[in-house]
Amino acid sequence: MNNFPSKEEVKRLRREYPAGTRVELISMDDPYTKLKPGDRATVRGVDDAGNILCAWDCGSSLSLIPGVDKFGVV
């Protein structure tokens, strides 16, 4: 089973979340992260797997996974 997005989906994500976009976390189902709702980040890019690479204001570099994590553009 292929869980990777299509090339078209990755292109769409790169258009929607270009580097420099500010995002805010709504929720994340990760028991190990210290990120909490309301934390903000600057998008660094989107990788080939469709993960949104983030530089969080708190210093974390955890990526967002569209369709799994909930977040919005600030």
Rank of each mutant, 00 (worst) to 15 (best):
I52Y: 02
E9F: 05
N51Q: 13
P18S: 12
P66Q: 13
I65P: 01
V73F: 05
S60F: 03
L13P: 09
E16W: 08
V10A: 04
M28R: 15
K34P: 00
L13N: 05
G38M: 01
Y17L: 14
L53K: 09
G20H: 08
R12L: 12
T21M: 07
V10E: 07
R12Y: 06
L35E: 08
V68N: 12
L64C: 06
T42M: 07
S61N: 07
A49D: 14
A19H: 04
V43A: 09
K34F: 12
L13K: 09
N2S: 04
V73C: 12
S27K: 14
S63E: 04
F4R: 11
T42I: 05
D57S: 04
D69W: 11
F4M: 07
I52G: 04
W56R: 03
G72H: 10
A55R: 05
L62D: 05
D39K: 02
V23P: 01
G50Y: 03
G45D: 02
M1A: 11
P31H: 04
P66L: 11
P31I: 03
L35Y: 07
P37F: 12
R40K: 15
D48S: 07
P66H: 13
T21Y: 05
G38S: 01
D39A: 11
K11D: 13
K36S: 14
D47L: 00
N3F: 02
E8A: 14
I26C: 05
Y17S: 09
D39I: 01
E16V: 14
K34R: 13
S27P: 06
I65V: 15
P5Y: 09
